[in-house]
Write a protein that binds this DNA or RNA. Sequence first.
DNA 1: TCAAAAGTGTTTGCTATACACCCATGA
DNA 2: TCATGGGTGTATAGCAAACACTTTTGA
Lengths: 226, 226
Amino acid sequence: MAADKPYCYRYPHPAVTTDIAVFTIRDDALQLLLIRRRNPPFAGAWALPGGFVDIDEDLDACAARELAEETGVVGVYLEQLYTFGTPGRDPRERIISVAYLAMAPAATVAVQAGDDAADAAWFRLDALPPLAFDHADIIAKAHRRLVGKLDYSTIAFQFLPETFTLGELQRVYETLVDAEIDKRNFYRWALALEQIEATGELQRRGNHRPARLYRLTDRERVTYLK
Amino acid sequence: MAADKPYCYRYPHPAVTTDIAVFTIRDDALQLLLIRRRNPPFAGAWALPGGFVDIDEDLDACAARELAEETGVVGVYLEQLYTFGTPGRDPRERIISVAYLAMAPAATVAVQAGDDAADAAWFRLDALPPLAFDHADIIAKAHRRLVGKLDYSTIAFQFLPETFTLGELQRVYETLVDAEIDKRNFYRWALALEQIEATGELQRRGNHRPARLYRLTDRERVTYLK
DNA sequence: TCAAAAGTGTTTGCTATACACCCATGA
DNA sequence: TCATGGGTGTATAGCAAACACTTTTGA
């Protein structure tokens, strides 16, 4: 048994990683969190945060841990997206990656470099840098899933902080579908969902009438509509 | 290096498998294809068909291969479902399983035992035997996905053979939603999808008026509606 | 001629859309 | 008082649901 390779198996085993596509909405644009790789392969290139699954670690836990370690982002909604396993997608060895989709509220500024990441930053989805591995494919799939779930789930609510106004919610949807939405129809739709409730508080911000604040009746959960 | 464990790594690696939940509709009931395990663990128990991913094999290819080897079922629609990786889900070692959802036309009788399967058989979903591993969880998730995609995709069309009648299509939907559907509304809906076209042939079967045969305009594809 | 499934339209209610004005605030 | 975004109702069109009888065939 070679001293530097102490873990031996009867058949070849792939390595397994998680990669996380974290979206947010800032400056009325859909943005994605990327890290700059510190180590080869693709050292210096931008990539999704992620890393190897510990041998006794659940997949969801791995995604949350890697995201926290590499970017400082914690407590966001994570859902498993798809598993990418084409042979050759990583030049080192066979690596199968379980990709996750995540949404962070706009106020999530806590982006910091970690051990494996030389840097971490938000990029507009329409202006991404060249990406390592097959991460462009993962991002494309994540974006399709996000848009696809918009009108039959409450997934977009995960972009909002604890409390929010209906105007803020509408701006999230308008950014995601890249179109203007009628305010009265949208308010009626949002309230009819029975997924949000008024806090009773008002948000006083700017030279205009204060807005009612709402919260999700069940944060943590993404519910399916209709 | 131990002779019986020639594949060594610097860090522990999990094994990766695929498991396939193949549904069909027979005798007006939703049924699932299971194999009886020939080897431990759970030797003699029923389980989903599936097995280890070869080191240079794509995940989709592995699912198709394992399904063919263990049950003889080939050429069915397969889509990746979810990846199950809870530590301890397999007593042998850490095994991460990429689960697939598949639909087979009712005429798919080509069920045969294979190398790793002592037997293979269809079971009604409401009368499944005790299952190995966490396969009951996988099946539950597969069933939810199937039902969830019914009304915004053409996934249910994959239960039908090359050509079919509108009555057969309706019976598929009625079985899946476990409710009666109005024939006139259903026919109108099905034709308005623009996913099927009349072949011009008639199906003459039984003491009643012959039914027009239809085919999918694009077999192979599951399209998203609306 | 009988039994069995195929095939066919219209009415009704509901949901989605289009659309414009007043309100409360800070500067 | 003005600029800014918050808040509200109604009319219309398009889609979904309810509903029953005639047609064609084989036995």
